[in-house]
């Protein structure tokens, strides 16, 4: 089984990769095999949120997931969300609020926020949305601008 090919459903499309070691993480498969470099490697220990992607709609730390374990699940990365309505609104809100400085943490924030706003259930409060982002660290903006982006994104999808 080791080094066998692996097929993942990424952003709605099946992608097959040759010779994927069993130990490979989803983060590395996305970045280095699928070429989707929007997903960032931060701490690689589950502590920063930069590598957040959606697995069956749930925000997931791709640095802590073995690619082979999610072979039957639906993976969505920032590149996929950028082509969808809610994702686009969130990205626009981040840009307009000046919530992006170096930009390294931004995909993780966008993915985690889009997941919450795109659930289709009742619209969460701003506080609930911010709680949902508590695992995402930003070392540039100081979070004020990110909070503004969250408020604006919530209004936009309302």
């Amino acid at each position: 089984m080791s080094d066998a090919p692996l097929t993942l459903t990424i952003n709605g499309k099946p992608r097959t990769f040759a010779r994927v070691p069993d130990a490979e993480r989803l983060l590395d498969t996305l970045r280095w095999r699928a070429g989707l470099k929007g997903t960032k490697e931060g701490c690689r220990t589950g502590g920063c949120g930069a590598c957040t992607v959606l697995v069956n709609g749930e925000p997931t730390l791709s640095c802590l997931v073995l690619s082979r374990e999610v072979a039957e699940e639906k993976i969505r990365s920032i590149e996929g969300l950028a082509t969808e309505k809610v994702g686009r609104l969130v990205i626009k809100a981040f840009a307009e609020a000046g919530a992006v400085q170096c930009g390294y943490c931004t995909p993780g924030f966008v993915v985690a926020l889009t997941a919450q706003l795109g659930r289709g259930t009742s619209l969460p409060s701003v506080d609930a949305l911010l709680d949902g982002l508590e695992g995402n660290l930003c070392r540039c903006t100081g979070y004020r601008a990110i909070q503004k982006a969250v408020e604006a994104a919530r209004e936009a999808v309302r």
Binding site: G46, G49, T52, V55, E58, P59, T60, L61, L64, V65, A112, D131, G132, E134, G135, N136
Partner: peptide, 9 residues
């Protein structure tokens, strides 16, 4: 425990 994205695993 951890953060929302950690608790999903």
């Amino acid at each position: 425990v951890g953060s929302p994205a950690l608790r999903s695993r």
